[in-house]
């Protein structure tokens, strides 16, 4: 474990090679911790402003994508006088290894912290492909 001090700035997402975003707001890459405990992988992500309805998690093939759609903040009757941070969406993808049980992935959100629980399959499904010698 590394000692890590609090980070002030959010990281803006970099243009991805597969698809560009079309929503009219900024998008950030949420900072994440990944640890393994008791045969499960836990991903902890900072998504301030997101609740359970704002978060969209999809699993396609072996890529787990987390999207959090944050409504722009407007305070009625007040004008933004000074800004050090910006509000925007969050997006991040993780490539899962073969031994994660796809059916049992769970997620919770609390105080702007998203936790993904990825249990490992009791019997890791490992498909090994034999290489045959071809001496023709």
């Amino acid at each position: 474990m590394i000692d890590k001090s609090l980070e002030v700035q959010k990281q803006e997402i970099e243009a991805t090679e597969d698809a560009e975003r079309t929503r009219e707001c900024m998008c950030f890459t949420p900072r994440a911790d990944i640890y393994e405990v008791d045969d499960q992988l836990v991903i902890v992500m900072d998504v301030p402003g997101a609740d359970e309805k704002a978060v969209d998690i999809t699993l396609e093939k072996n890529v787990l994508t987390v999207n959090a759609y944050i409504e722009p903040v407007e305070v009625e009757g007040f004008g933004l006088a000074f800004a050090e941070y910006e509000v925007g969406d969050y997006q991040r993808s993780f490539k899962l290894s073969e031994d994660i049980d796809r059916e049992k992935i769970q997620a919770t959100i609390r105080d702007g912290l998203l936790r993904l629980y990825l249990p490992k399959a009791t019997q890791a499904i490992v498909r090994k492909i034999d290489v045959k010698a071809n001496n023709n």
Binding site: V8, V44, P48, V75, D111, G112
Partner: peptide, 23 residues
Amino acid sequence: AGYPAVNLWSNENGVILTAEVPG
């Protein structure tokens, strides 16, 4: 200037300070 980053919203009656402190 430090953690957390703050935004200040103001009108003639005062200020609303917001900060993101996830977790």
